[in-house]
Structures are given as C-alpha cells and as structure tokens.
Write a protein that binds this DNA or RNA. Sequence first.
RNA 1: GGAUGGUUGGCCGAGAGGUCUAAGGCAGUUGACUUGAAAUCAACCGUACCGCAAGGUACCGCAGGUUCGAAUCCUGCACCAUCCGCCA
Length: 422
Amino acid sequence: MLDIHLIRENADIVKAGAAKKHIEVDIDRLIKVDDERKLLRQELDAKRAEQNRRSSEIQRASGSEREKLIEAMQHLKAGMAEGEERLKKVMAEWQQLMLTVPNIPDMSVPDGDSDADNVEVKKWGEPTVFDFTPKDHVELMTALGMADFERGAKVAGFRGYFLKGDGVLLANAVWQLALKHFSAKQLVPLSVPSLVRRETFLGTGYLPQGEEDLYKTQDGEYLAGTAEVAAMGYYMDEVLDPQALPVQFLGFSPCFRREAGAHGKDVRGLIRVHEFFKWEQVVLCRAEHDESVRLHDWLNRNTEEFIELLNIPYHTVVNCGGDLGLGQVKKYDIELWVPGEKTYREISSASYFHDFQTRRLNIRYRDAEGNMRFPHSLNSTAIPTPRILVSIVENYQQADGTIKVPDALVPYVGKSVIGAAA
RNA sequence: GGAUGGUUGGCCGAGAGGUCUAAGGCAGUUGACUUGAAAUCAACCGUACCGCAAGGUACCGCAGGUUCGAAUCCUGCACCAUCCGCCA
C-alpha cells in the first residue's frame, strides 16, 4: 500500500509506475473517491461534534428540558445514519482501490512485458561443456534412484514427485550448507508456518489479486508459497525497537504453489512443482532508500556466493517492469545454467519494497525524532530444493551416468560421486 | 469438541453507562541538582484522519446492536490462557 498523500501529490508518477508494470489501476477514480471520503468525513465529524456537545447538555439538564433535548437528539441521529451509510460504501471502495495500487518501480528498472525482457547485469562462469551428450535431470535422477516421477504422479497427481536415496541426501546437504553459509551472514534462522491466515497474505501483497495461485483450507487459511509470508507477519501490528534494525531472518518452510497460470509449462521434472522447500532471506530496515538499495544488493550477493560455492554457471538479471509484482520496487533474479534445456533457469529472486508491505502489515518503529515510521522490507531466495538439484545433477553429470558431488557438498553428502559402483 | 477467564496507549495496568482531555506506574524527552553519572524533583509525553489555523473527529481485539450518550450493556467472530476430552 502506498500513502494516499503520496498518491495524490504524485498521481502522474504513480500512473506511470503502474503502466511500467503493466498493472491496471484507476488512480483518477481513487482520487475522486478520496475527495468524497474527505467531504463525507468532514460532514460527519461536524455532526458528531454537534452530537457530543448536545450529549453533555442532556447530562446537565433535567425534567422537561431534558426530555426536549433528547427528542431533538433523536432527529439529529436520524440524519447521521444516512451519512454513515454513504461513508461506509465510499470507504469500502477506497480500501479496495488502495490495495490494488502498485508500488512505483525504481528508475533503473528496464521497460518490458515479461521475463523475456529482463536484462543481464552479471554473468559468472561459462555454460558447462560436455564431451558426451548430456542427459536431463529426469533421466539422470530416475536412473540413479534419486527421484521417482511416475509414482509421484500416481500418489500426488500432476507435478508430484518423490525424492529418494541420494536425491534426499543431496537435498539435505544443500539445506545444511545453506544454513551454514547464510547464518554466517548474521541472518537469524527461523522455521516458519506455511499455513497462514489471510491478513498476512494481504499484508505481503499476494492478495487480493493472487487468490487463484494459492491453496486454501476449509478453515480459511492459505498455504504459503514462500516463508516470506510468515516471516513478514512475525512483527505484524508491532512497534519495533529501532536498535533492532535491520531485522534479518533466514526463514525455512515448505512452499505450496498452485501454478494456476502455468498449466502447460515445465510439465516434466523438478523445475516447477506444487510443493517444495525453501530457505528465504527476509529483512526489515530503517525507512531509507539507500539502506534498501544496500541491503538488496547484499541479499542478492549472498545467494550468488552460495551458487559460487556450488560452482554452477549463472547469470543475474534485473527484472523488467512487466515482470515485477504489485509491491516490488526492483528485483534481481539469479538464473542457473541448465544443460538439458541449454538455457538459464531462475533459482532466486531478490526484491525490495520500501514501506509497501510494512504499511499493509502495520509494522512500525519510532525514529530518532520520535516519529512513527514504517520500516522498509526486502526478501530474497536463499536457496530452494528440489529445483537446485536440477542444475547440480545436470552440470555435474559424467559420461558414465554418475554425478560428481560439488566439493562444498561432499561433507554433507558423505561421498564425492553419486552412482559410482560400491 | 466442551468449559471458564481474558484481549485497554511503546510496555504494565485501573476503569463496570455520562466530571467531557482513559487513573496510576514503567519506559522516553526536556529542565533542575551534580565535575559527570546514578538517585531525586519538576514539566512534557498515544495513533490516525480532516483543517491554513483555531480546532474537530475516530480509535480500549474485530464487526454489528441497544441508548440522547458505550472501553463499560447485548450479539456474533477472531485470538490468548487454563482445565476436560481426543490425539501425533
């Protein structure tokens, strides 16, 4: 959510920002509704002032004078009911519109419609070269008993999978290395709920517009697609000690995604699944743009470093306007080389939001001047499994069908090659 | 699933239909005292909206209702605590 004052004073910038994100929103309508809101408020406030004044007169009066005053009040009250009804309607539309106003993308965000228009800002390593024909991860992992997709689909349906044997070992090894690497950055590990109430999704900006992407329980909770939701909800409705900023969480959770808009995409393997696990970096910091920018780069760099530990070729892109979510000001994606597809595939997303989320979540702190402020929020993937396994097994496969374990993972896997004859 | 008790400002906590500006304490800010600090004393000190301002309005978990008037009474819901039942 943006500040209504900011929207009113910078309507053109807000409109341009929405256009850049390809998000439709009627700012003129919002301002008109806000005018109505102000007017009705003023009228109603005046009537309430009158009511309060007369109420104390009644208190002091007695006898027939009191009866008369009470009767007069009843008339006044009747006149107020209509105003209150109108204000309620106006407020409902006002709130609905406010929730749909996107945050303004940064100047440095490139124009574009979709992820095809994202711009590479960094490239690390070269696409892996093989002196044999490389296999894709489905073939490799199935052959090595690391995953079972047929039975996954039998048991769980479309996009179902089992990890098995060394597949589980490898996934666990990634989690453990991630815990070590990211904790060392002073991020506090946090195991978070995935089953989360609606207001937390509204607060993080996934709702109201993302309803169809979420699984919902018969009790009304939603299954989160990222630990960001619960980690951000952690301080909802609280006033933070400014000394505690920046708050730096390393959240871990199962993640559930309906992938409602992606029915035909990535139907094979571990790239796009309905449930997976993810370590996620979540940060709250002082309400200063420079601080957001600094931490954004830092979060993204943390993940780049982790990929470098695994020694997998990657590049980093800055997402174009059309590929930004409602609340995001700017986003980097890290994409890993996937030999089976001869392309880079997203493994990580690092975004900052300014106070868009904290305003919705009502998270505040008192600054040095004693004023209440909404802190800035940021988040970035640390590492997801099993998607990361795709790039590991495909880049590290050997001619004989075995998979070399990345050096950094060897201590956690307990061997240096998967599939070698014992 | 059943029962009971709760939810009040940054925090704790009183308040039980009308002294209107929600007692009091803690924390915080400023000042006095002090070489400095602590202690003590004094003053100030909630958030949001509207308004150029004076000022006004709203907010006591949320939403309704009763009333001339609701933190206070009624209804529904959410959450917290404890107990019982069930159960990894």
